[in-house]
């Protein structure tokens, strides 16, 4: 699993890749945390279960990231580890993290939502899976 954030004029792009679709989704989730703070600062102490389903893989990525945004906002948590399984267009996951501690996490910005801009989910020519979109910060 690999992840990165990428540039957008006003907001931030999140991208994950991996040998499977689930790994790519886990990578995109790590990049989502990176839009807020350094994921290495976030301890994987508490587990939150997340499930979503969508008509296609692209909508499923947006739903997955938005489910995380919702849990981050309402639980005041940050996440750093993601155990994801995908069956068809149904996702089940456990996100591991801890409550926001501003002095230690130094969060730069909250994510408002995942957008459909630059939204792409698919298999690359090298066989690896990629999942990305722009998130509004």
């Amino acid at each position: 699993m690999a992840w990165q954030t990428f540039a957008h004029d006003a907001d931030v792009g999140v991208r994950g890749s991996g040998a499977t679709l689930a790994e790519a989704f886990a990578g995109a989730a790590t990049a989502l945390t990176a839009a807020v703070c350094d994921p290495a600062r976030v301890r994987a102490h508490e587990a939150v279960a997340i499930a979503c389903a969508a008509p296609d893989d692209e909508l499923l990525l947006v739903d997955w990231l938005n489910a995380l945004v919702f849990e981050m906002a309402t639980r005041h948590m940050l996440f750093s580890r993601f155990d994801v399984s995908i069956d068809g267009h149904r996702l089940q996951a456990t996100a591991w993290g801890e409550p926001v501690a501003a002095p230690r996490h130094r969060p730069a910005a909250e994510v408002k939502g995942a957008s459909y801009c630059e939204l792409e989910v698919g298999r690359q020519p090298d066989g690896r899976w990629l999942a990305q979109c722009i998130v509004d910060v």
Partner: peptide
């Protein structure tokens, strides 16, 4: 958060 979630809900 309310506005952000309304945007998320209705966009989808």
């Amino acid at each position: 958060g309310l506005g952000h979630q309304i945007g998320t809900d209705y966009l989808r």
